[in-house]
Amino acid sequence: MAEPILVLKNLVRSFGALTATDDVSLDLRPGEIHALIGPNGAGKSTLIKQIAGELRPDSGSILFEGQSINALDPAERARLGLARSFQVSSVVPDFTVLENTMLAVQGASGSTFRFLKPALSDRDLTEPAAFHIRQAGLAGRETVPAAALAHGERRRLEIAMALAMRPRAFLLDEPMAGMGVEGARDLTAILAALKAEAPILLVEHDMDAVFALADRISVLVYGRIIATGTVDDIRASEEVRRSYLGEEA
């Protein structure tokens, strides 16, 4: 089996008496979508923040392509190729779709500190940006300010920006949140295509999407991973049913 891109080893993070991340180990392998599911308050966001570098674990380690990234800040992790999207849409509202995506292109290539050449006429920026905008299904919307986009389009813009980071792995935090049925179906197709670019660690509430997309699923409850397996394993697991799926049904 190929080496995993991302490995979490025995991560622990507490807030006072509450252990939000309780000895979590999981990995993300090349070519897969690994979904992380769990009820509200299970500690999914806390876990994502530790992977992205916004929170430091109390103990345990995070390996990215075999290297520990525990000591790196979020910007450094992003440059290494860990592309994230946010639970609440996070774009630059006054910038156009093209400018937003250009920001990611220049960030990924470490070429932000150039002072005189106009960015908008710099083909090294605009062409890759336009390419990733098409990839995310936003062709024709390049000059629209992000603030004027519909919710679903903004989600796509975030995908375009994640793609523009030329990532080695995606960290997608509830990309389906707030999408209608139609939009969720579209986005599911886009995510399935994203997997060809880089493996995805997908935090998602939409069970239809998770069961349609995921190669493997980990279930997080009260900060602990109670099961990891294929879609069928998880569907069949008594414990998962009782502690999570059952509650929603």
Partner: peptide, 27 residues
């Protein structure tokens, strides 16, 4: 020139959405 350059783009972005700039790999 500066405000329209790559640096200017990132600087103006950081004013509006700091998290996005960090996610783009820039401090």
């Amino acid at each position: 020139l500066l405000t329209q350059s790559r640096f200017g783009l990132a600087l103006r972005a950081a004013k509006q959405n700091e998290a996005r700039v960090i996610a783009s790999g820039v401090r």
